[in-house]
Design a protein around this nucleic acid. Sequence first.
DNA 1: CTGTTAGCGCTTTCAC
DNA 2: GTGAAAGCGCTAACAG
Lengths: 337, 337
Amino acid sequence: MNLRAPVTLLDVAQRAGVSVATASRVLNGGDRVPRPELQERVKAAAEELGYTPNAQAQALAKSSTNVVGILVHDIEDPYFAAIANGVMRAADERNLLVMLASTFRDAEREIAYLASLRAQRARAAVMIGSRRTDAESLARTASEVGSFLNSGAGLALVSQSGMPAHTIEPDNRAGAAALARELVGLGWRRFAVLGGPDTLATARDRRDGFLAGLADSGLEPVAIESGDFTRDGGHAAIERLLDRGVGADCVFAVNDVMAVGAMSALRQRGVDVPGQLGVAGFDDIATLRDVWPGLTTVRLPLEQMGRRALELAIHGGEPTTETFRAEVVLRESTARA
Amino acid sequence: MNLRAPVTLLDVAQRAGVSVATASRVLNGGDRVPRPELQERVKAAAEELGYTPNAQAQALAKSSTNVVGILVHDIEDPYFAAIANGVMRAADERNLLVMLASTFRDAEREIAYLASLRAQRARAAVMIGSRRTDAESLARTASEVGSFLNSGAGLALVSQSGMPAHTIEPDNRAGAAALARELVGLGWRRFAVLGGPDTLATARDRRDGFLAGLADSGLEPVAIESGDFTRDGGHAAIERLLDRGVGADCVFAVNDVMAVGAMSALRQRGVDVPGQLGVAGFDDIATLRDVWPGLTTVRLPLEQMGRRALELAIHGGEPTTETFRAEVVLRESTARA
DNA sequence: CTGTTAGCGCTTTCAC
DNA sequence: GTGAAAGCGCTAACAG
């Protein structure tokens, strides 16, 4: 076994003394099954020569691939990783290869990747993550999404409505509203909200849902502060809030990483959680379940959402929207004395 | 724009009134550059028809792709996500598409994925994560690695030596030894080690390095308990240790997630950290930097390691081994009163 | 059941 | 500079 030697089907066929058609049939399960004896010969030849089918050639010949794409903003963000994981598991079960692209939150990259997937003739793709509401990039994305769909590939979006494709929606509003009610039930009254960028639908929905939940009890938040949808965003937002000196007794961050960033800032400032200030997040990120005090949050079936997204994407058909329920998880960060 | 309509280069060429050769040359920068006027015509035609090159066909024709693969055990594990992120960034810069596979810690899957990447004629691949030392699966992996390399593709391994490919090694032993020394310097004396499976080289090296570091001060651990290389593994291991009642005053878990799992168990048992027991980990996982008390650990330049791995993989050449230094990060979890 | 043969869409000599 | 044509490796009719 030395130096590159591209063994082709023809090589195998010749060595086995059969036609390429026969070789193809036995090696890649086809319609008609050759006689046992030939099967043996072909398999043996393939084995001896160390034959590996050229997926590119196969794809070209039957104009269809077993590749699916996943687009996430940032694979290091545990939220995306969890959903992507679900997609990958489902893909693995179906023997599909996954092309994963981290767009680093750049709309242009996202569009370019989608185009690449189209060029690769991917069977389907799953786009994860809330889109910005910025009209222009939204239009450009929509256009590329149209082309993608038009190429015959399947597509499912997670946390992003408004596109003519299958959509998986976490019930952000209802979940946040339920959380608000539970917190009020616990006795908290003066709430502050750490929102995300206003262009992110997910962040907006969670904030609005929370406000709606408070309204159910005739309450209004004492403050709303927006920041990036990240750990640092939460850290900075709570500091601004503290500096402004609003008298909140409980703060809701629109996602867990922001909440954790906020908790860190509070610790630095010497504010006790939940003694002086209760803190709640959203997502129930697995990696953060061990933080202390345990973070009250709203659990989303992230992996399942990913699985389902892949199923819908490869299934195709008319655009569907499926909503996944969120579930409030009360922990120590909002425990009342 | 209706129903699937595969626009080919031929369509574009005809519409522009040129040959496919010319169309190819202008659309995919080639050797000879056609006259400006033709370029315009071809580009216009391509635009109007909404032409997208078929990557499969291109790959077949020039027998080379711009696809690279990444193999990780579990993309939800922040350690792997961080390295994979580095690989993806480097890939993105080079305009390479990434095929990411999560092997779910299954050796067979890993081998199968490598074979798939070979079938896809991937340009290169990066395998991340310590290999088990189980002789049989090691041999089978080695065999597939051989085939992969033999196909002309590049390969780099992260945290796994012993294969005839480029290798990126975090300096686990030295890092753990340095940590041990620092802890001793802080005044800790009775150490317990929460090791990983003995078949994982990474886990072994960290444990051994730590022991060596202790030995430098003439110390020996009071106990060594092994568990899975996961959050739950750390949680269970510390509980067994506690039940056995070894009188340790500081415990070193061979990775951060184990350490966090252990801290959680300690909290449940009412053991104060670092008051009653100091805790240290390894990796300095970003997502865990906000846990409280802040976890003393050993930082590895995860993203950089990933970047470098990709560079080596696509560069090819003689197998190299590059070692990345680890750096001790002291935090509150091992602070002495 | 098995072999022939025409493509799949694009790149790349090799002539013009 | 530009085009004709021969593949790249495999699949899928279509004949035997």
